[in-house]
Design a protein around this nucleic acid. Sequence first.
DNA 1: CACAATTAAATTATTCACAATTTAATTGAC
DNA 2: GTCAATTAAATTGTGAATAATTTAATTGTG
Lengths: 158, 158
Amino acid sequence: MVKHADTIPDGENSLLLDDQLCFALHAAARAMSSVYMETLRDHGLTYPQYLVLICLFEEDGLTVGQLGRRLQLDSGTLTPLLKRLEIDGAVIRRRANHDERRVEVRLTTKGRGYRDVAKRARAVVLQRLRMTNQELSNFRGQLANMTERLRNENPSDE
Amino acid sequence: MVKHADTIPDGENSLLLDDQLCFALHAAARAMSSVYMETLRDHGLTYPQYLVLICLFEEDGLTVGQLGRRLQLDSGTLTPLLKRLEIDGAVIRRRANHDERRVEVRLTTKGRGYRDVAKRARAVVLQRLRMTNQELSNFRGQLANMTERLRNENPSDE
DNA sequence: CACAATTAAATTATTCACAATTTAATTGAC
DNA sequence: GTCAATTAAATTGTGAATAATTTAATTGTG
């Protein structure tokens, strides 16, 4: 008897690329990054740098650790990225007075100026997406929900 | 008169991190990769290598270019990745007879053996997600739809 | 046939992601 | 107050993503 389960895309066992949620997610994330880069590259910024900047627009003077918890990135990623932003003149890194282990990151005038670049980059993305605020919000919620479940070691009963 | 539009998360102009679809997407993609890695790392595989392998499970003997079109990756990413898979003994790369510019990638017995690892990795993800096949399929469709719109240079009327 | 244009893959360089280790500052137990 | 434990960031090493360039094979035009 030859089983041909492998050729039946049943959802549970399929390994077909087009059935993979993970591939769709991976592709979407890279497409999103790519669209942001169209605008950002003219200003010498990268997409992860954009994410760091909007964190600082929201609250300036965060430490490396606070940025890392917010963005889910560790110092191995952030330290060199922040050094590049400092060389560019967008931020200043300074050891905290009260605890010299901490490094505080502050926007310069040039750094605050990137706020307009960020808004323009975002506008391009929104124009392409053509989604209503409601749709955007829903989709974002679904993604956040999924992320939370993926991060949850014990799915309810293990 | 002081405008305070910046502090009102209106969806259109907000630069708050939690309002960013892009960040939710970025975080979800990394969380997904992380869960796959939990299983894959025990076998010395990475997540992008997993994606290449399931392409080859679906159709063996693809060329570098065909893999690239399927996964949206160029030779700068694929060549070193495939060399690592070859060193691992999972695939063999061979110039095509009829056109020596092409490099065909074929699974070895060891490579085909990773099919079980791939299924197990996928099972862990599905268990965490706790989504029905219908939900998975819908979500995948939404992501693919979004990717297509992001890739589309001219959104209908430019 | 000869030679320009095209195609396929590889290479080089920059940046990001992440694991593992190291260094330095701070805290806590005694 | 001393010293172990903890915390914060930096460093090191590997792999991946992408742009730009290079090399080699093939195709097409004359």
